Amino acid sequence: MTWNWQLKKWPQFIYNEEDFKEQELQFFEKAGMLYGSFQHIDADEQEALKIDLISQEAVKTSEIEGEVLNRDSIHSSIRRQFGLQTDHRRIEPAEQGIAEMMVDLYRNYEAPLTKETLCSWHEMLTNGRRDLIDIGRYRTHEDPMQIVSGHMGRPVIHFEAPPSKRVSQEMESFLTWFNHSIKSGKNELPVLVRAAIAHLHFECIHPFEDGNGRIGRAISEKSLSQSIGRPTLIALSNTINEHKKSYYEALESNNKDLDISDWISYFSDAVLNAQDETQKTIAFIIEKGKFYKRFEKLLNARQSKVVERVFREGFKGFKGGLSAKNYQKISGAPSATATRDLAKMVEIGAFTRTGELKSTRYHLNIKK
């Protein structure tokens, strides 16, 4: 098997910028809409949204790699780093590390990408690890860096990265390309093309012993932020995670050749979908504010507690809707009280009701 980095013209990727002009226009249009919508939220909600989006990306970029972390712990860690009040819970090293990396990405998106930045991110991500040889530095092991699946006796090799002895040189070339391809740079590239190539190129080098996927996605988000002059705060990892199989298939189908048109198209669509997800989240927050203005004084303590919990699920809400049993569990109310509470909320228009008997479900009465 020949990999793209073994080809004579590596890393001169082949694509036609004209093919992605429509996606580029959509990106900037949606970025403008997101920024405008963000301004319609009050300062406290803006701060909360910023924390929520960063937390979600931290959770989902880890989930893509099969690592399930505690969202509340990450949320608390991020709040602490922004100097906000927290619940002082104990944060596990992995959760603290990904939170630190995402906050650094947010704060320093304008700065050039350097080896020191990448190694610092790697050190954050591997916080508490004892199973790695190289932490906070490029890999040095002599064994091939391979992405493998299947049984021990019959492994399937999806990709093999350049040997460790080539990594420093490859990364020096990558960093030069990245910093020169920025807007108004020596070799400026269109925003989506640059972000897509940055991710694929980095993943093909696979410079670290672990954590390459999370760092690669962070590089893409840094690239997007640099292009619009502010943190993107889009749900990129969340969008990728919802279709994780397609993501890995797209990466694998573009690691053997230098023509990466399919990858750029795939990645551009992922970014546009992520923008849509974030737009829905902002619209949801605006509707949340309207909801509380209408109903806050009409709700008792039990109802308020349940409403707050449902809002925490985001614009998608509870899968299938809120059941009477959910209401009892959240509020601590007995069955008869829960039934009365729910009936009253439907009556005043706070909830809508669907289904009958055991299939009855309740939903927030907001625009989606």
Rank of each mutant, 00 (worst) to 15 (best):
P11M: 12
Q23R: 12
F38S: 10
D42T: 05
A43T: 12
E45C: 00
D52F: 02
L53E: 13
A58S: 15
A58E: 04
E67D: 15
N70H: 13
I78S: 04
R80Q: 15
P93A: 07
G97I: 03
E100A: 15
E123D: 12
G128Q: 07
G136Q: 03
G136D: 06
E142F: 08
V148S: 04
G153I: 06
S164L: 09
S168T: 14
E170H: 12
E172C: 08
T176R: 15
N179L: 07
H180L: 13
K183P: 11
K186H: 14
E188A: 09
V191Q: 00
A195I: 06
A195R: 01
I205Q: 10
I215R: 03
I219F: 11
Q226T: 06
S227C: 05
T232A: 11
N238L: 10
E242Y: 00
K244S: 13
Y247D: 09
E249N: 13
A250Q: 13
A250N: 14
E252Y: 13
S265A: 13
S265Y: 09
V271P: 02
N273C: 06
N273W: 04
F295Q: 09
N300F: 04
N300S: 05
E308I: 14
E313D: 12
F318S: 03
N326H: 15
N326T: 08
K329V: 14
S331L: 07
S335H: 04
G349N: 01
L364I: 03
